[in-house]
């Protein structure tokens, strides 16, 4: 279970509070108006930004002060999810060891992961020689070999077209289901949330609310969300 305990995040004049829990193994969307602090919330969970108050807990363990790499988390950012100077296989391999050294067994895991995301035989290519969707798949293959129980997506597929984005999100949801991972994804598109996330955390007016069923929330949005959705 992921728990945000009396969390207070402050950035200049911006303040965000969160006090909520998310059951392990669930898929949840983080939705809210832009500037509400969705990315900031993910960055605090991932360890890129320190809260001024409160704790972040995973399965009862306090991870508030752990550096990003020591947390049980794989994160995909809005951009720059791959190193352009490394091959696809090297990029995936970094999920196993951060120093580019790989054993025979590691090689096998890397090529298995690439096959799972549909990129069999693409290991020697550099990101520049891959399409946007393929680059996303390489990043997902790395998430796969990282074997972390919590996956955070900060809109990594926002630059892709609608059909491709839906395809990638389905793939992420499948991978999360297969590995039993918990998935938390920022989205500004209610269709994405309805598609793969049964639960939604609404971030608005300085507060991240506890997860609630996505369909019910979107069918009956509170005023702050309704204004954002525009219906």
């Amino acid at each position: 279970m992921l728990t945000l305990e009396s969390l207070v995040i402050r950035q200049d004049t911006f303040v965000l509070r969160a006090d909520l829990s998310l059951q392990a193994g669930t898929v949840a969307a983080v939705i809210g108006p832009s500037g509400a602090g969705k990315s900031t919330l993910l960055n605090v969970i991932a360890g890129f930004f320190a809260p001024v108050q409160g704790r972040v807990l995973w399965q009862g363990q306090d991870i508030t002060t752990l550096p990003p790499a020591k947390r049980p988390i794989s994160m995909l950012f809005q951009d720059n999810n791959l190193f352009p100077h490394l091959t696809a296989a090297q990029n995936v391999g970094l999920g196993i060891r951060p120093d580019l050294r790989r054993s025979q067994g590691d090689e096998q895991r890397v090529s298995d992961a690439l096959r799972r995301v549909g990129l069999d035989g693409y290991g020697a290519r550099k990101p520049g020689a891959l399409s946007g969707g393929q680059q996303g798949r390489v990043a997902l293959a790395r998430v796969l070999v990282q074997r972390r129980p919590l996956i955070l997506l900060d809109e990594p597929f926002a630059a892709l077209g609608p059909a491709l984005k839906a395809e990638m999100l389905d793939l992420v949801a499948d991978l999360a289901r297969e590995t039993g991972a918990t998935l938390l994804m920022v989205s500004h598109d209610p269709f994405d949330a309805r598609r793969i996330a049964p639960l939604t955390i609404l971030v608005a007016e300085g507060t991240a609310l506890p997860p609630q069923p996505t369909d019910a929330l979107l069918d009956n949005p509170p005023p702050s969300l309704a204004a954002y959705l525009g219906d």
Binding site: F48, P67, A69, S74, F83, L86, L94, P98, D99
Partner: peptide, 25 residues
């Protein structure tokens, strides 16, 4: 700025970061 967060999240520090990220770029 561009790749620091990714390297951080993968635990690339010290020599591994120098060889895997800084020097090639």
């Amino acid at each position: 700025r561009d790749f620091g967060p990714l390297a951080d999240s993968l635990g690339m520090t010290g020599l591994a970061r120098l060889r895997g990220l800084t020097l090639p770029r």
